[in-house]
C-alpha cells in the first residue's frame, strides 16, 4: 500500500489522506488510524475528525512538537490494517412512503419499480456509516443498492422533518433534526441519532453498520413517544 499523504491545514491542523474515493478499505484505514491517535493522544492534540477517506488532526500549534507528530503519524500509518467493521450493528425501524416518505412513489417510477420493491431493496441492504457530519448526528451511509440510486432533486426542500430516511445519488442518510435537503425522502424513523438530553447524545459512530426494518404506521406513535422519552429505539443486533 502506498503511504498516506499528509496535507497541511494551516498551523493548527493537518489531514492524513489515504485515498480520494469512497471505499470501505480506505475508510477502514482512516478509522484504524483514528483509534491509534486517540489511544496515544500526543501532546497538544485537540481532536480528530475521521471522514470517508482521510482524518483531520487538530492540535494546539504552540503546545505541539510538529516534527514528532509527523513522525508518529507516519510510523502509525505505515503498517496499518483497515479496522474491521466494529461489533455494533444497528436495526433502525422505518415507516416507508405516504406522509412519512413523500418521494417513495416518484423514486419507484424513476426506476420502473413498484414502491414495494423500492422498500424491499432499501431495507435488505447492510449499510456502513462512513461519516457523521454536516449537522450533529447526520448519518452518511454507504451501501445503497445501485438499482435505486437516484440523483438529487432539482429543487431542494427548505425543511424536511427529523428522522427522514433519504437517498441522494449513491448515498443514503438519516436526518438528525429538521433540516434543508435536496435528497429524496423514502420514509421516516422515530430514532433520534442525536438527542442532547439523552446519554449518549449520539447513538451511532463512523464505522458502525446499520439495517432498516420496515414497520407499519400504526407503530409510529408508540415508538415516537419512547424516543421522545429518551429511549434509543434503534436496537443493537448481531451481524
Amino acid at each position: 500500500m502506498t503511504a498516506p499523504r499528509i496535507l497541511p491545514c494551516g498551523d493548527s491542523a493537518l489531514t492524513v489522506e489515504f485515498g480520494q474515493t469512497i471505499d470501505p478499505a480506505i475508510n477502514g484505514m482512516v478509522l484504524a488510524l483514528d483509534d491509534i491517535i486517540r489511544a496515544r493522544a500526543p501532546a497538544g492534540l485537540i481532536e480528530t475528525v475521521p471522514t470517508y477517506r482521510s482524518i483531520t488532526v487538530q492540535f494546539d500549534p504552540v503546545a505541539t512538537d510538529y516534527d514528532a507528530l509527523i513522525g508518529f503519524l507516519n510510523d502509525a500509518a505505515r503498517d496499518i490494517a483497515p479496522r474491521e467493521a466494529v461489533g455494533r450493528r444497528w436495526r433502525v425501524p422505518v415507516v416507508y412512503g405516504g406522509e412519512y416518505g413523500s418521494d417513495l412513489e416518484e423514486v419507484a417510477e424513476i426506476h420502473g419499480l413498484t414502491p414495494h420493491q423500492v422498500i424491499e431493496i432499501h431495507s435488505s441492504a447492510v449499510y456502513r456509516i462512513y461519516l457523521i457530519g454536516f449537522l450533529p448526528g447526520f448519518t452518511y451511509l454507504g451501501g445503497l443498492d445501485k438499482r435505486i440510486a437516484t440523483s438529487r432533486r432539482l429543487h431542494p426542500r427548505a425543511k424536511i422533518p427529523s428522522g427522514t430516511i433519504m437517498i441522494g445519488g449513491e448515498q443514503a442518510g438519516i436526518a438528525p433534526m429538521d433540516m434543508p435537503s435536496g435528497w429524496h425522502n423514502l420514509g421516516r424513523t422515530p430514532v433520534r441519532t442525536y438527542a442532547p438530553e439523552r446519554d449518549p447524545a449520539f447513538l451511532f459512530a463512523a464505522g458502525d453498520e446499520l439495517v432498516f426494518e420496515p414497520i407499519d404506521a400504526s407503530r409510529w406513535e408508540a415508538l415516537e413517544k419512547a424516543a421522545l422519552a429518551g429511549e434509543p429505539v434503534a436496537e443493537e443486533v448481531r451481524p
Binding site: G10, S12, A13, T51, R53, T56, Q58, G133, F134
Partner: peptide, 27 residues
Amino acid sequence: VSDGIVDGHIQVPGSGQPIVLMRDRQT
C-alpha cells in the same frame, strides 16, 4: 469526496470565488 474542515480554510467552489470558513463552519 468530502474531507475535514478547519477554521480559516479557504475553499473554492465552482464559481472560482473563494469562501473563508469561520467558526460556525461545517465539520
